[in-house]
Write a protein that binds this DNA or RNA. Structure first.
Length: 464
RNA sequence: GGCUGCGUAGCAAAAUGGUUAUGCAGUGGCCUGCAAAGCCAUCUACGGCGGUUCGAUUCCGCCCGCAGCCUCCA
């Protein structure tokens, strides 16, 4: 029985989709004016894992993740680069998809773009004006009137009085209330713009998600996710917009993932302390990044450091090592490990516990290897099948263990094999000194040798 | 200031009102020509002070420390 923590109620709730057997999930995706950083990777990996498990649990999932491809920063960046905004966004959309594939993130079912949803956005704004929740301000922009929406603040636990006393934004005199937010923004000269009943302009940031989510999944759907920082004001405003426009409840469960931190501080573009996915991929194999992300619970903070990535690397190596020389053809899955794994995932996607089940499995597998072929097949199959739900261990073990992110053209696999052969000959001649020297030379190149009892030598690459 | 949340062994990270988390690292052993890998054993814990309880790391209160949101941010 799947339980999910709902930010709206601040409790774990038994998951029950609106329509039996069918789940609609919307996740706020990227604003595409730069490369994805590890914080973005966390959103992608976390909700990919959520999606995989929901499907595994027997639901038909409709997973929507949007792309914000028009906003102030995009316009600004495109101007700085002297390129068209759509050229800019297309480049970073392509880059995002590359990063996503590297991290074994399955593509969402629908990936709507703001610029392709303008008609829906305009329709929703018109509805809000008709319903008396929105108005045209003194500067021509259309604003949402937050005081007209009775439950404003329900998601973030804020109330309007507190917000106003702590107000840090410059008063915009076009607004009736400082907390009002923009739905439609009038275009300045040479800005990308669309025709609307209020003139040439572009959508505000929050309205696109309301329009795209209800458009793809209906007025009322099951799960809406995103980073913690979107809780307020973005998701709060989405509720106000969608419920204000449709008159229906918007979302049943709100899921928010915690931040990636660097030195106990949030990783963010504005702080400039971010590492892009492609930078990190130069140092670590993609699956290590995925493992690292899943090694803490999705709502907890995740501290980014080399030490943590190296730990993830060692841990993943242990799992792959246990799968070495296992022939997975058996379709039987061990019921007890399966059930322990499911219990962990059912408990609000507790991936650290789910991973610990995999390690217990690996230990038993290591023990079974030399003694019980049938059990070995069963356990290795179980390990691979359960790990697949986390998007892990789907590579060939030898391939994973022998691979390296550092492309050393001089130190090929063939050369390693040759050296191993030379060492075997030295060993046969009981020339231990030469054998050890060859092993040390290889070690300096990051190649670790392991002599098996049957006289064969296996090897793997380790980060130097 | 308002509102969230967190504080677990050397590091990372979970669960739990009384019994082994797990991974890395350490120590001892088995294995090995020696290693590595693996296996077995083992040492390090629950921020502080009170309260509830037969019993609290786990529930409650206060304090201290940290992070986040309140402004664009995943």
């Amino acid at each position: 029985m799947l339980k999910i923590y709902n930010t709206l109620t601040r409790k774990k709730e038994i998951f029950k989709p609106k329509i039996e057997g069918v789940v609609g999930m919307y996740v706020c995706g990227m604003t595409v004016y730069d490369y994805c950083h590890i914080g973005h990777a966390r959103v992608m990996v976390v909700f990919d894992t959520v999606g995989r498990y929901i499907r595994y649990s027997g639901y038909v999932l409709n997973y929507v993740r949007n792309i914000t491809d028009i906003d102030d920063k995009i316009i600004q960046r495109a101007n700085e680069n002297g390129e068209g905004y759509s050229d800019l966004t297309q480049r970073f959309i392509d880059a995002m998809h590359e990063d996503e594939r590297a991290l074994s993130v399955l593509p969402p079912d629908i990936e709507p773009k703001a610029t392709e949803s303008i008609a829906d956005i305009i329709a929703m704004i018109s509805k809000l004006i008709i319903n008396g929740l929105a108005y045209v301000g003194a500067n021509g922009d259309v604003f949402y009137s937050v005081t007209k929406f009775k439950n404003y603040g329900q998601l973030s636990g804020k109330n309007l009085d507190d917000l106003q006393s702590g107000e840090r934004v410059d008063i915009d005199h076009a607004k009736q209330n400082p907390m009002d937010f923009v739905l439609w923004k009038m275009a300045k000269a040479n800005e990308p713009a669309w025709q609307s009943p209020w003139g040439l302009g572009r959508p505000g940031w929050h309205i696109e998600c309301s329009a795209m989510s209800t458009c793809c999944l209906g007025n009322h759907f099951d799960i809406h996710g995103g980073g913690m920082d979107l809780q307020f004001p973005h998701h709060e405003n989405e509720i106000a917009q969608s419920e204000g426009a449709t008159g229906e409840k918007f979302v049943n469960i709100w899921m928010h993932n915690g931040f990636v931190r660097v030195n106990e501080e949030k990783m963010s573009k504005s702080l400039g302390n971010f590492f892009t996915v492609r930078e990190v991929l130069k140092q670590y194999k993609p699956e290590i990044i995925r493992f690292f992300i899943l090694s803490s619970h999705y709502r907890s903070p995740l501290n980014y450091s080399d030490e943590q990535l190296n730990d993830a690397s060692a841990a993943l190596t242990r799992l792959y090592t246990s799968l070495r020389d296992c022939h997975v053809e058996n379709i039987i899955i061990d019921a007890e490990y399966k059930s322990r794994f499911e219990d962990a995932m059912d408990d609000d996607f507790n991936t650290p516990v789910a991973l610990s089940v995999l390690f217990d499995l690996a230990r038993e597998l290591n023990k079974a290897k030399e003694v019980d072929t049938e059990r070995t097949n069963c356990l290795s199959n179980t390990l691979i099948k359960l790990a697949a739900l986390l998007g892990l261990l789907q590579d060939d073990p030898e391939k994973f263990l022998k691979s390296s992110v550092i492309n050393d053209a001089d130190f090929t696999d063939d050369l390693v094999e040759q050296q191993i052969q030379a060492r075997l000959e030295a060993k046969q001649a009981k020339n231990w000194q030469l054998a050890d020297e060859i092993r040390n030379v290889l070690k300096e190149q990051g190649v670790i040798l392991e002599d098996a009892p049957n006289g064969l030598t296996s090897w793997r690459r380790e980060k130097i």
